[in-house]
Amino acid sequence: MGDKTLKYARIIATGSALPERVVTNADLEKLVETSDEWIRTRTGIRERRVSNAEETTGELGYRAALQALERAGVKASDLDLIVVGTTTPDIIFPSTACLIQHRLGANGCAAFDVNAACSGFVYALGVADKFIRSGQTRKALVIGAETLTRMVDWNERETCVLFGDGAGAVVLEASDEPGILATCMHADGGYKDLLYNPVGVSAGFKDEPNHGVRINMSGREVFKVAVKTLDSLVGETLAAAGMHESDIDWLIPHQANLRIIEATAKRLKMSMDRVIVTVDKHANTSSGSVPLALDEAVCSGKVQRGQNLLLEAFGGGFTWASALLRY
């Protein structure tokens, strides 16, 4: 594990937040030419949460953070760092992390966003881990929060069925006990055209309703690259931690598609009984999916202290990332 004097970044509490509104596959049948069976068999999704005007990314992130801090027994003023993984910030600047920081009363600590699409939370976790292991940070708040339905074209059946809104958070602290054992992060911008949003500030902005914001995705091609990439990522992460497939107690993957999740579990020779699946209830919440799944696994009693968890995600960019940790 390198320098033995370095402390581990250990998760001491989790939290989550979801919009109130539930949109089922049956609801979508009234909007586009699709069916519950078509959606379920291809994605595993049954329903998703859709935010209202007040439920911004920052609002959901704040609620998840507040819950995590309360469970951790940590005051916001004790935080040294806040990192928010998101691709749907409230505004361009200040960062959503700064907005959440102020609402929490953590003013003064470092706070910034990380945009790695669906890998955002795992990227943010990797960044916070390095800050803690360097000795610069003792307590950190890491959030994954998204309101992707804001950019969904509800007339396009290939994409509108896939996404939902939500947020999850974890509180990390420096510890002598094992915590995060290894993190791996990668990206390849060469795949940009397979999954992207064409609208930005210095390019693509249009003076029209919704500014032309929409998600462009080549689903079949994304699926192929995701399965192949996550397969190699698993091996790399295990090697970095000096562990084997059999050492992993739980797989907590990005919740985008049940078929991709099943393919990753097969690579690990893991039964689906040891995989946390929330895609059926939440759909793809991008940066929110991994922390939401982690929080549900902890709250349900499935994940226990001392167990080894493999977190992994794949998103637009393409980006892919993992974290192997002892809970």
Rank of each mutant, 00 (worst) to 15 (best):
Y8M: 04
Y8C: 02
S16V: 01
A26F: 05
A26T: 11
L31H: 04
S35W: 02
I39N: 05
R42D: 05
I45Q: 00
E47L: 01
E54A: 14
A65W: 09
Q67H: 12
L69E: 03
A72K: 11
A72G: 12
A76N: 11
A76R: 09
L79D: 02
I82H: 03
T86C: 04
F93S: 09
F93V: 08
T96G: 03
T96K: 07
A97I: 04
Q101M: 12
C109Y: 06
A110W: 08
S119L: 03
G120L: 01
F121V: 02
Y123S: 03
A124T: 06
D129Y: 07
I132A: 07
I132V: 15
S134Y: 10
T137P: 05
R138T: 14
K139I: 10
V142Y: 11
I143G: 02
G144S: 07
G144M: 11
M151G: 07
V152L: 14
D153I: 05
W154K: 03
W154A: 01
C160A: 09
L162Y: 05
L162H: 03
G164V: 08
V170G: 01
V170M: 04
L172G: 06
E177H: 09
P178M: 08
L181W: 12
L181R: 14
H186Q: 13
G190A: 10
D193L: 01
P198L: 09
P198Q: 12
V199Y: 08
S202N: 13
S202V: 14
A203R: 15
G204W: 08
F205W: 15
D207Q: 11
D207C: 06
P209E: 14
P209W: 13
N210D: 12
N210Y: 10
H211T: 00
H211Q: 11
G212F: 03
M217T: 00
M217C: 05
R220T: 08
V222E: 01
V227W: 02
D231R: 12
L233H: 03
G235N: 15
E236L: 13
L238V: 04
A240S: 15
M243Q: 14
D247E: 07
W250I: 02
Q255D: 11
A256K: 00
A256C: 02
I261V: 15
E262P: 00
A263L: 12
A263C: 09
A263S: 15
K266M: 09
L268M: 15
K269A: 08
A283I: 03
A283R: 04
S286G: 05
S286D: 00
G288A: 11
L292F: 01
G301L: 06
R305W: 10
N308D: 02
N308Q: 09
L310P: 00
G315M: 03
G315F: 05
L324R: 08
L324Q: 05
Y327K: 11
